[in-house]
């Protein structure tokens, strides 16, 4: 019997594009808030963080539409956002003061819980502010749920360096946390 090469028709470009749009929108829903929070920690305002986040996900859309690599996408997103934020900060030519701190906890939390959390946060914030920039970024990216390899990609560090940075920071934080 003669062999017949089977070839499936390629999906139309519009279907591919729609699939990429859906995928980017889904990733956006999951990662937008963590990315925007992280971008603010890089030293840009809320409005700029929102703009940079939008640009980052547009870059992701073009990246995926061009069929480029898909491994470690979250690391890619945070790295791209970080680079854009640093450019934005430089373009603004001055450090923008960080936004005022948000309320300590949601309205459903009881006042005692709010007070304890606020005090704890103040103590921790003082230590975090004193950390070197790279250590602080590792800490915040981890708090946003990034895995170590994603943090490594974002900050262009080795995985071992991320672990060393985090252990050093938590070691300092543990000294403070244990004090009243």
């Amino acid at each position: 019997m003669e062999a017949v090469a089977l070839s499936l028709p390629e999906p139309p470009a519009t279907c591919v594009r729609a699939a990429v749009e859906r995928e980017v929108a889904a990733i956006f829903s999951q990662s937008h808030a963590p990315l925007a929070r992280y971008l603010k920690s890089v030293g840009i305002s809320s409005a700029d963080a929102e703009e940079v986040a939008q640009d980052t996900f547009m870059a992701l859309f073009l990246h995926l539409r061009a069929g480029k690599r898909r491994d470690n996408l979250r690391g890619w997103i945070f790295r791209t956002g970080r680079n854009l934020a640093l450019k934005r900060r430089q373009a603004n030519s001055r450090e923008i003061l960080a936004d005022p701190p948000p309320p300590a906890a949601g309205p459903e939390a009881c006042p005692e819980t709010n007070a304890v959390l606020a005090a704890e946060r103040q103590r921790l914030e003082a230590v975090v502010r004193a950390l070197p920039g790279r250590d602080r970024e590792c800490l915040l990216l981890r708090a946003e749920g990034l895995r170590y390899r994603e943090i490594a990609e974002t900050l262009d560090m080795s995985l071992g360096a991320v672990a060393a940075s985090l252990s050093k920071s938590f070691s300092r934080l543990s000294n403070v946390s244990d004090r009243p």
């Binding site: 701190p101 300590a104 939390a109 946060r121 915040l140 708090a143």
Partner: peptide, 25 residues
């Protein structure tokens, strides 16, 4: 220390519904 930091960090979250941002994207 990690647990306490995470709890303090989460307590500072302000809910940001991304609906308008998604539509814009």
């Amino acid at each position: 220390a990690a647990e306490r930091f995470d709890a303090a960090y989460r307590s500072a979250f302000r809910p940001e519904p991304p609906d308008a941002s998604v539509a814009r994207l």
